[in-house]
């Protein structure tokens, strides 16, 4: 049975979809079968970021309503044969999702895939609660700023109360993915520092993704950053996060600090 991950945040625009695609592609490159599921019915984006927007025939709502079978709706990635996308419907809204339908689809996906990654919509309403409901692990995407941190805190509270795991008295595994981190601005005090965010949210850190134009570039190319530019700093950070998700112990590096040390070394050599 595969593991179900929900990528969630409460706040919009913090990088849930980008992170879903990047983590999905990173895990798939480890030769594990991955399905990324777009739960943002009505505002779907994951197909664009994955570069599959012209190949969508059936979607999640069709599968839930029984209009299509799951294999018909799944889109295999052109670059990685172990990566699949289940797109959301753009013409419907979140009310089209039903609890039983989602449970059935997730249950079926778990049988075929090692990882089922659910891209949650923003907000705390039905779409977000259904996306997290059947998850085994949650990745909470947060930007280093106060409103994002507070919304993440709210979502963590919901992960601990509204999910199936929580209702069965089990503990939901939660990880913090800090995105758009800029060490220079954090140092100047324009952004929250890593320690501040960790102190407020008090959940383990999965990774820190540095703020980078590579991420935007990759999204516009229709490729997860871990596929289009695997050597870039954000891609490396996502690869490390994926390894931690898979259970490896990899020390977390704060982006920028490493560069600081290199800078010092080079500086000394030049002198």
């Amino acid at each position: 049975m595969g593991k179900v991950i929900v990528v969630t945040s409460g706040k919009g625009g913090v990088g849930k979809t980008t992170s879903t695609a990047a983590l999905g592609a990173a895990l798939a490159q480890r030769n594990e079968k991955v399905a990324v599921v777009d739960f943002d019915v009505g505002l779907r984006n994951l197909d664009l970021v994955m570069g599959a927007e012209r190949r969508v025939v059936y979607d999640l709502v069709n599968v839930i309503n029984g209009d299509a079978k799951l294999p018909q709706a799944l889109i295999r990635d052109k670059r990685l044969d172990t990566l699949f996308l289940l797109p959301a419907s753009q013409t419907r809204d979140k009310d089209a999702l039903t609890e039983e339908g989602v449970e059935r689809v997730i249950g079926e996906l778990k049988k075929y895939f090692d990882w089922v990654i659910c891209d949650s919509p923003a907000g705390i309403e039905k779409g977000a609660t259904l996306a997290m409901r059947h998850a085994d692990v949650a990745v909470v995407v947060t930007n280093p700023e106060v409103s994002s941190v507070r919304d993440s805190d709210r979502i963590i509270g919901m992960l601990d109360s509204k999910t199936l795991k929580a209702e069965n008295g089990e503990r939901m595994e939660k990880h913090l993915l800090l995105t758009r981190y800029d060490s220079v601005r954090a140092e100047r005090g324009d952004m929250l520092k890593v320690d501040d965010v960790l102190e407020i949210l008090s959940i383990p850190l999965l990774g820190i993704i540095p703020e980078s134009t590579d991420v935007l570039k990759a999204s516009n190319l229709g490729a997860p950053v871990t596929l289009s530019d695997a050597r870039s700093a954000p891609a490396q950070a996502y690869f490390e996060a994926a390894r931690r998700l898979a259970g490896e112990i990899v020390p977390v590096t704060v982006p920028g600090e490493k560069r600081g040390i290199f800078g010092k070394l080079f500086g000394r050599k030049a002198a």
Partner: peptide, 27 residues
Amino acid sequence: DEPVRSGQSIIFPEGDITIVGSVASGA
């Protein structure tokens, strides 16, 4: 024994409350 998250409320009119953890903004 855990942090009280934003949006949660802990109501206990019968007596004292001890929280081993933080109480978030909005809780």
